[in-house]
């Protein structure tokens, strides 16, 4: 019985994993094909994977120009989704997300402060990421402390997070407005959650950091599974819950910091993706972690496709930030989760 159930689970996982990989690739191709000059998705696919019989120079150029943004979007979605899953597990709170719990806003505030007070240092991405990391970690600690004051329930944690997130997102906007006068770059472009600003040479570092974080998270699979059922439960099986929490918060903060320092704030991907993943393959992190990453990448790509379409049809000067669209998708989902939770 247990054997057959486990085998079904495993098979489901493999099926969903392949389907979602296909979906991600498809969205990736469509994402690149959309733009002022529309390119046939099939041509894009052929060019991307070097299958084109007679490559046209125009297509190759356009694809390589648009590739960076598409990659940045994939990495954003994947990183935030993984951060969300880790946060939901280490707080044992299904409402956790780097944005809702204030990590993104504090990271952004720290980055803006860094640019204002040490502009010469902030030229280097490493420093920006380090500063953003400290910001994200402080945001997490602040939310955790506030929620403990409020009794430590699921909802109190969300409310504490919303308080922290609102305060620091307001603060970061003011600071970014000041930064804008220093950098002479349009305010809306700077780290407000748009993947258009990522440069091609920045992709490798983003990828490396995400890969390292993913690898570290994969090593945590068993401790995280045991941790789900309580501190003393994990302890009985030989895992130290305190360290799981520290390492989890560290990785989630790092992932958030990377995205904030390249892209800015993109909310709710980290909330929604783990829920979809658990719905599809259950809560075992061995299955839910890869699925969460793929779902996150797909959501981000889909949202960015919407961003592209809106800006094409409205024809305004700058594009909408990606974070706006993910909020519109994610916030109703949060509302649904809160209502469900309060009813129980």
């Amino acid at each position: 019985m247990a054997i057959s159930i486990y085998e079904t689970k495993l098979r489901n996982f493999l099926i969903f994993f392949s389907l979602l990989t296909l979906l991600t690739v498809a969205l990736f191709v469509v994402h690149i094909s959309i733009g002022p000059a529309m390119i046939d998705p099939i041509l894009v696919f052929q060019t991307l994977f070097g299958l084109s019989p007679n490559p046209q120079k125009v297509v190759v150029n356009v694809v390589s120009l648009r590739l960076t943004r598409a990659l940045a979007t994939v990495l954003t979605g994947a990183a935030l989704a993984l951060a969300g899953l880790l946060m939901q597990t280490i707080t044992r709170n299904p409402l956790a997300d780097p944005y809702i719990f204030g990590l993104s806003s504090t990271a952004l505030t720290f980055v803006a402060l860094g640019v204002i007070f040490a502009p010469s240092l902030m030229v280097y991405r490493h420093y920006i990421i380090a500063v953003a990391f400290l910001g994200a970690l402080s945001g997490y600690i602040l939310t955790a402390l506030l929620s403990r004051l409020g009794g430590g329930s699921d909802i109190s944690m969300v409310l504490a997070g919303i308080a922290v997130a609102s305060l620091f997102s307001g603060l970061s906007h003011v600071l970014l407005y000041i930064v804008q006068s220093m950098l002479r770059s349009p305010y809306v472009y700077f780290l407000l959650g748009s993947t258009t600003t990522v440069l091609q040479r920045e992709i490798p570092l983003m990828t490396e950091l995400l890969a390292v974080s993913t690898f570290a998270s994969l090593l945590l699979i068993k401790p995280l599974n045991a941790y789900l059922y309580g501190d003393s439960y994990a302890k009985q099986l030989g895992f130290e819950p305190k360290y799981i929490r520290y390492v989890g918060a560290f990785i989630a903060s790092l992932l958030t910091a990377v995205i904030v320092s390249y892209v800015g704030i993109v909310g709710f991907v980290g909330l929604v993706a783990p829920h979809i993943a658990r719905f599809l393959v259950g809560s075992n992190h061995l299955f839910s972690m890869p699925i969460t990453i793929l779902v996150g990448a797909s959501i981000a790509l889909a949202a960015d496709i919407i961003v592209k379409l809106i800006s094409m049809y409205v024809g305004a000067i700058a594009e909408l930030p990606l974070g706006v669209v993910t909020s519109i998708i994610g916030a109703p989902f949060l509302a649904y989760l809160i209502i469900k939770r309060l009813r129980e």
């Binding site: 044992r92 299904p94 059922y229 439960y233 809560s283």
Partner: peptide, 13 residues
């Protein structure tokens, strides 16, 4: 035990 993140009996066992 904590049941705030939904999981199945087999996953727990």
């Amino acid at each position: 035990i904590s049941r705030s993140i939904p999981s199945s009996v087999l996953e727990f066992l």
